[in-house]
Every structure is written in structure tokens, then in C-alpha cells.
């Protein structure tokens, strides 16, 4: 099991403490390839892409529109 974690340095929290999950690009429970972009995070009006760390089955833990911070785990991937 590998966490999908928002990088600690993705944005400056002194400017903007929180972001939101803008979109998941795969459905919960689906197979994703390694390095595929799986989610978009929006901070202010900027969008950041989050990639799958490994290939496997995706479990979403923070749904679309959920609030996130740098370091947040938004889902996990179980190798299949």
C-alpha cells in the first residue's frame, strides 16, 4: 500500500493555508498506471497535478471538493 500524498512544498502555506481536490481523474477502485496524473489540486485559482506513485488499485480518501494541506494523504494505491 502506497499513500498518495500532497508534496510538502507544493505551495506556500503562509499565503494560502488550504487547497481543495478539484478533480479525481480515475474512479475509486479503478486500476491506475504508475506516474499517471490521478488528481488535480486547486490552490487559489492555480491547479497542481498529483501523480500516482506506483501502479495499482486506487482508493480515494479525500473526495472531490475536499480540503487539503501540504502533506495531506488524499488516497492510496494497492499494488495488484
Amino acid at each position: 500500500m502506497t499513500d498518495i500524498r500532497i508534496p510538502q512544498d507544493l505551495w506556500d502555506v503562509s499565503d494560502t493555508p488550504e487547497g481543495v481536490v478539484a478533480n479525481w481523474l480515475y474512479r475509486d477502485g479503478s486500476e491506475v498506471p504508475a506516474r499517471a496524473t490521478v488528481a488535480e489540486i486547486m490552490v487559489e485559482k492555480a491547479t497542481f497535478e498529483i501523480d500516482a506513485p506506483v501502479a495499482g488499485r486506487l482508493t480515494i480518501s479525500v473526495p472531490k471538493d475536499g480540503v487539503v494541506r501540504p502533506g495531506s494523504v488524499i488516497g492510496r494505491i494497492d499494488a495488484t
Partner: peptide, 12 residues
């Protein structure tokens, strides 16, 4: 592998 990506309108 057949794609199961769910794309937004803009990405498409």
C-alpha cells in the same frame, strides 16, 4: 490497457 481515465472537458 484500455483507458479508464475520467477526463474533464478541458483536459479532453
Amino acid at each position: 490497457m484500455p483507458s479508464n481515465r475520467v477526463l474533464t472537458g478541458s483536459r479532453a
